[in-house]
Design a protein around this nucleic acid. Structure first.
Lengths: 199, 199
DNA sequence: GCCTCGATGTTGACAGGGACAACATAGGTA
DNA sequence: TACCTATGTTGTCCCTGTCAACATCGAGGC
């Protein structure tokens, strides 16, 4: 008992267990009492590390956003690509990340789990992702394009990849045979927007 | 007491109260005990009308979907419009509905509140909304377009309006001055896709 | 008019979660 | 060594969901 009185790295363990549950699509099972049981620790120990469950979920979401930005950033900055290629690859990468980490993506964007405005770090990372999108889409437009138009294209692009991801994740799309192919061709279809916008 | 033993229309009252809470963005406060209190009825009376809270929320969502379809359907079938106009107006109407009933829209599409697959009526209405979108977008394409292409355009369109709605609702977009104008111009931008797709 | 039955509402009971305060212990540091 | 802080524990309270047993009402058959 004297040996185990302190867990050692409970904070980390809580995050890990939560992540496991999230990945197993069991977010609804995340609770301090349950986690404490699984970690063989007393029921209110988690309060030493997170003020409440929401904060724990927000932290897991934050890590998700960090990984997200880490995946998107390199794609958005490949020098060898033409602007349209970068835009396309960024979109494909976005949706693929969302599908590969579907439950995590849900946690990140569904406001039912935590209020994003209470967690500035999360907001900051989300904003950074949007910046990447804006920079990449803007590069596809004429130099004469107004900033207003640039923001609009970036928004439309974000709406598209986000919507596509959500619809896939929530199983609201009719069955599709070759998902990867479909994603790429949808994104390709979409990139034309930038070109059309240039007239 | 003998007069008030039976509420009269508790089922309806439960739905109404829940709707109020949803519209006030307080879905998290929806619970049988709390509702019972507000309706001056005993704590387990709601169980006579809904097997659990999830079912109550699903019913409210179902009504939301029904209203949604009722709003979209007429727009999708205006004969006087050219196909592209219909497509555009459908998109604008979609996003406007979502914003005007933002909390309700969230309840309808966020899977954190109830599992859609457990409520076939809800699924049916959602499918009907997608059908409208598919029919309207397909009308903008060449007759020679494959069914595969039609489904793809409809999906891309749905992803776009859904994504735009969600981003707005969840406050994830940078501030925008004239929202209505922005929505229309984004949708206009989007409709070009159908035209580009025809080459 | 009376009786019975089904629908609806009530009460009691139990399990489980979130949250906090008071207390215990371990490990580092003055 | 003595103390301090971070961390873990226990006790307690209040909330919720859910079920079972019981009460009441209204409608239809006699």
């Amino acid at each position: 008992m004297s040996k185990n009185y302190h867990h050692g790295d409970l904070r980390h363990a809580l995050i890990e267990k939560t992540l496991e549950l999230v990945q197993a699509d069991q977010v609804h099972l995340v609770g301090f009492r349950e986690l404490a049981r699984q970690l063989a620790v007393s029921r209110s120990a988690p309060y030493r590390h997170f003020p409440n469950v929401e904060a724990l979920l927000a932290e897991v979401a934050r890590q998700g956003f960090a990984a997200f930005v880490d995946v998107l950033e390199p794609v958005a900055t490949v020098k060898e690509y033409a602007p349209e290629e970068r835009f396309l690859e960024l979109g494909v990468t976005y949706v693929q990340f969302a599908l590969e980490h579907s439950a995590h993506y849900r946690l990140m964007f569904d406001c039912a789990y935590f209020k994003q405005e209470d967690f500035p770090e999360v907001q900051g990372l989300a904003a950074r992702a949007f910046e990447l999108l804006k920079r990449t889409s803007s590069a596809c437009m004429d130099k004469s394009a107004s900033d207003r138009d640039k923001v609009e294209l970036a928004t439309v692009a974000w709406a598209f990849v986000h919507g596509l991801s959500k619809l896939f994740i929530d199983g609201q799309l009719p069955k599709i045979k070759n998902q990867k192919r479909f994603i790429r061709s949808s994104c390709q279809r979409f990139v034309k927007l930038a070109q059309c916008a240039n007239e």
